[in-house]
């Protein structure tokens, strides 16, 4: 298995002693290699060395029994001489290139880049163009939109969709401002941190305290007024300012007016936890009522219109 017609045992031993001597620095081994009546190229030496190593590894442990690391090593020792010779001749050619050839190559590369970029641009333009040529195909029948009422419905739909897009915009803006806020917070945090030299110590204390806290039962929680909040921003706040309103947008204003009509102040004079909770529930209830009233109004209106149409048809 280790035999090679071209390599004698003595020469192989000599090669291995050189490899040991020069720590596998093959350029140096090749430089110092002297064996009578043999002219070895660097690839010859490498090929012989790695082939011998592989054979030896395989003889010691059959390939099937090798551990993954050893197998990996075994595969790494696979030296492809032809490929290496080709690579080196290419490297040689690259090395011998003149400045003009380098300049030409560079020019061609930039030219290629330009062409590729242009092609992409052209493709995009073409796609755009085709899209413009294609008229939108209708998917459903246009029957529902033929009448004046249908047209009104269509108009509503379009308006609402434009509303949606507006909303989307506003949401996007809101996010933008949120990002701004996020950017600002670290600076404020810094300003807080800076004066406190023992800030880190305090933090540590806080952590320790947290660890020491024991779990309270529900009664105890009520007794001591301990409550858990899902979202809390830093800083001290009044509970009255924390009243969350589940109703949003136009309904919120309507809820407020409804509440003033009922003679309930927009701010609670005594915002205990339970009071705030009840207040929120009230707000929600009013909101739901208002919404259902609106829906009812709309349905009544439609019913009236339909009745009128029926009368017209009958009449």
């Amino acid at each position: 298995m280790l035999k090679n017609d071209d390599w004698s045992r003595e020469e192989t031993d000599y090669l291995f002693s050189m490899c040991r001597e020069y720590d596998l620095r093959f350029p140096i081994i090749w430089d110092r290699y002297e064996w009578p009546s043999k002219q070895r190229s660097l690839e010859d030496l490498k090929a012989r060395y790695y082939a011998s190593c592989r054979s030896l590894m395989e003889l010691r442990t059959p390939m099937g029994q090798m551990s993954p690391e050893v197998l990996n090593q075994f595969n790494l020792y696979n030296f492809d001489k032809e490929r290496e010779v080709m690579r080196r001749s290419m490297a040689e050619r690259q090395f011998n290139k003149t400045q003009q050839q380098f300049a030409e190559e560079e020019m061609l590369l930039t030219e290629l880049k330009r062409i590729v970029a242009n092609q992409e641009k052209m493709f995009e333009e073409r796609r755009d163009f085709y899209q413009r040529l294609n008229f939108p195909t209708t998917t459903g029948s246009i029957q529902p939109y033929t009448g004046s009422q249908g047209l009104a419905h269509l108009r509503d739909m379009m308006l609402s969709s434009s509303d949606k897009s507006k909303k989307r915009k506003s949401v996007a803006l809101g996010q933008g401002s949120g990002a701004d806020a996020a950017q600002q917070t670290p600076t404020s945090a810094n300003s807080i941190d800076r004066p406190g030299i023992g800030g880190s110590a305090k933090e540590k204390d806080g952590k320790d305290l947290k660890r020491q806290v024991r779990k309270l039962t529900q009664e105890e929680e009520q007794l001591y007024g301990v409550s858990y909040h899902e979202k809390l921003s830093s800083g001290v706040k009044l509970r009255s300012g924390m009243v969350a309103s589940n109703v949003k947008g136009a309904t919120a204003a309507k809820v407020a007016t409804a509440l003033t009509q009922l003679g309930i102040a927009p701010r609670l004079t005594m915002p205990t936890a339970s009071a705030v909770q009840r207040y929120e529930q009230l707000q929600n209830a009013v909101g739901v009522l208002l919404d259902s009233k609106k829906l009812l109004d709309k349905l009544e209106q439609e019913a009236r219109v339909l009745k009128a149409q029926l009368e017209l048809k009958e009449g």
Binding site: P27, I28, D31, R32
Partner: peptide, 10 residues
């Protein structure tokens, strides 16, 4: 010189 060794052929 490569890696502290003189390349004698060169």
């Amino acid at each position: 010189v490569h890696d502290g060794y003189v390349l004698k052929k060169g």
